[in-house]
Structure formats: structure tokens, C-alpha cells
């Protein structure tokens, strides 16, 4: 009664809010590099130098780069053979689970890919090879229905030399 109640809310909450902030931010902290989006020039111009290349961690962890890789995966027609319905050696998820290739291996196999129609050596710019490799590596963690759901959203996107038209 001696002191008006109104003083409390101006002074008390600071400590409390700080505490809550710290508690709350713990799960989000490790996520911050995963979510970052670096736009503009200055992307990698060279293939991975080895297993310890620090760029590998960045590309594998970064969701934006991985998603870009997914986009080019469809644009370059990779999905025609290696799509959700692929089986056997073309099923990139199964292959990865069986042989657990490293990022460098995946990168090299895309860069020197000898597909039905053409090889990719020198055709796909380095930056996109990084993104594609990151995407292919990320497929292990992607559930099949999640991949199918993404394909549904991207059903109107062109695939290499064919485009089935806009989403209907």
C-alpha cells in the first residue's frame, strides 16, 4: 500500500524478459547459418578442393543453396531419370544409403555425369554443381512424400528440353 503498484511493471520485467529470451533462443541458434541467404556475386568458382573444403559444410547445411539445387535438378532434367519414381541405381536416395558417397564424390559424379543425352562437364557452371551436389546429398534426409509434395508445387517448371506447360 505504501508504494503505488504502477511502478512495478516498468522496472520488474526487464530481467524476466531477458531470461525468457535466452531460454527461447536456444533451439534457434544452431539454425541460423542453415537459413541464411547470401545473394549477389561471389559464389564458388572452383570444385571442392578435398573432403575438408569448408565450403562443403556451408553448402550442405544451407537450405537456400540446397533448394536452389533442387530447382536446377529439375531444370536440367535430372528428375527425368532420378525423380521420385526412380528405382535401382537411378534412385539417388537408395544409392546414397548403400554406398554413402561423400560430397566430393557426389560433386564429381554430377560434373562428369555421362547420361543418356549429354555429359555435363563444363556445361553446368561451378556454382550450380555445388548446389546440385548439396541437393542430392540432402535427399537422404528428405522423406519420399516430402519430395513428392515439392514436385507437386513445381509441376509447372520446365525440365531441360521439355515443358509441359503451366500448372493446371
Amino acid at each position: 500500500m505504501a508504494e503505488p503498484m504502477e511502478r512495478h511493471w516498468l522496472q520488474m520485467p526487464c530481467r524476466h524478459i531477458l531470461l525468457a529470451c535466452m531460454l527461447f533462443s536456444m533451439p534457434t541458434l544452431p539454425a541460423c547459418s542453415r537459413e541464411s541467404r547470401s545473394l549477389g556475386p561471389g559464389q564458388p568458382q572452383t570444385p571442392p578442393s578435398g573432403f575438408a573444403d569448408p565450403r562443403i559444410t556451408y553448402f550442405e547445411d544451407n537450405l537456400y543453396q540446397t533448394a536452389q539445387g533442387g530447382r536446377y535438378f529439375s531444370w536440367y532434367g535430372c528428375a527425368a531419370c532420378h525423380g521420385t519414381e526412380a528405382r535401382g541405381e537411378r534412385d539417388l536416395i537408395a544409392v546414397q544409403l548403400r554406398h554413402s558417397p561423400s560430397f566430393v564424390d557426389v560433386y564429381a559424379s554430377i560434373a562428369h555425369h555421362r547420361g543418356v543425352s549429354f555429359g555435363h562437364d563444363g556445361m553446368i557452371p561451378t556454382e550450380q554443381l555445388w548446389q546440385l551436389a548439396a541437393y542430392v546429398r540432402s535427399l537422404r534426409a528428405l522423406k519420399r512424400e516430402q519430395r513428392r509434395r515439392q514436385d507437386l508445387d513445381q509441376a509447372g517448371e520446365p525440365q531441360a528440353m521439355s515443358w509441359s506447360g503451366t500448372v493446371r
Binding site: 553446368i124 517448371e157 520446365p158
Partner: peptide, 20 residues
């Protein structure tokens, strides 16, 4: 027609037939 451009772009009358 032989390089990266043709992956995504078309130039009718050449072998560049990318659609994206």
C-alpha cells in the same frame, strides 16, 4: 549452343533447346 546457355535457353534453328 554447346555450353551452359543451352541448358536453359533455346535458339530456334540451332541445337540450343533448353526450356527453363
Amino acid at each position: 549452343t554447346r555450353g551452359a546457355c543451352a541448358m536453359c535457353h533455346s535458339v530456334r534453328g540451332t541445337s540450343a533447346r533448353g526450356r527453363p
